[in-house]
Simulated assay, not measured.
Amino acid sequence: MTIPIVLLHGFPLDHRMWDDVVAQLSSGRTVLAPDLPGPAESLDGVEPTLDAAADRVADAVRAAGAEQAVVAGLSMGGYVALALLERHPDLVAGLALVDTKSTADAPDARAKRLDVAARVEESGSVDAVRGMVDTVLGETTRTAHPELVQRVRAWIDEQPPARVAWSQRAMAARPDRTEVLRRFAGPVVVVVGDEDQVTGVDAAQDLAKTAGGAPLVVVPRAGHLTAVEDPACVAAALAELAQRVDAGA
């Protein structure tokens, strides 16, 4: 059995953001793409932490019969991937960090997340995050691919408010996991869009250095959602990482 690939999505989206990447990965490899942190109705009484989300991912990998996986996380998914690496290190055979970072939120960013979470809960709608479509997609995509703008906007509109609020609180509470990444000895690839205005190329370069000089793939004419904006490029980076993991195994 080849080592599976686990794809962890960004905020405020779900597993569908990986669909075009999955279509270009080898059909001979199992791909798991869970919704984070799970069904909205399952969040009652669950403390909003990325640790809880990571534990659920670990359960899903083990339930699929796998002892290890290549883990790829985009944005919030990257935060969960690093939490998984810290809490379940034996599960992570390779790591792809896509348009993400290892550091914690600055105080102003943390406060903004908590404010958005409160507004989503109070309104019972995702209006507070609907405008993120203009932030997460690059300028080239917004200009040249209006169909992708409409697709991402529809995905955002379909998110359960309870899951949106939970995820914002979980991200606000996350610690700095730079040292967790530094200690990881397995294969890593870092991917970023050259028009990413959320994390950006500088943060991606820092991640690559922290990971011992890991390969850095800069996706041209793409913003924060490289897996949606250029799925072929992201799929190629993940396939190369998986091949390195297979060779090491």
Rank of each mutant, 00 (worst) to 15 (best):
V120Y: 00
V120D: 02
E121Q: 12
E121F: 11
E122A: 15
S123A: 15
S125N: 06
S125A: 13
V126E: 00
D127H: 13
D127A: 13
A128D: 12
A128I: 08
V129K: 03
V129T: 04
R130E: 12
R130I: 02
R130H: 06
M132F: 07
M132H: 03
D134N: 14
V136Q: 01
V136H: 02
V136S: 03
V136R: 01
G138L: 09
G138F: 02
G138C: 05
E139Q: 13
T141K: 01
T141V: 07
R142Q: 13
T143C: 15
T143H: 10
T143W: 12
T143P: 02
H145F: 07
P146M: 06
E147N: 08
L148E: 11
L148A: 10
V149K: 02
V149Y: 03
Q150F: 06
Q150T: 10
V152H: 00
R153L: 01
R153S: 10
A154R: 13
A154H: 06
A154G: 04
I156T: 02
I156M: 00
D157Q: 08
E158H: 07
E158K: 04
E158I: 02
E158D: 15
E158Y: 03
Q159L: 07
Q159K: 10
P160M: 05
P161Y: 11
A162W: 04
A162F: 11
V164L: 04
V164A: 04
A165T: 09
S167G: 10
Q168E: 12
Q168Y: 07
R169K: 14
R169C: 08
A170T: 03
A170M: 13
A170N: 04
A170H: 01
M171L: 14
A172I: 11
A172P: 04
A172T: 08
A172Q: 11
P175A: 10
P175Y: 02
D176Y: 12
R177K: 05
R177Y: 12
R177F: 07
T178W: 04
E179N: 06
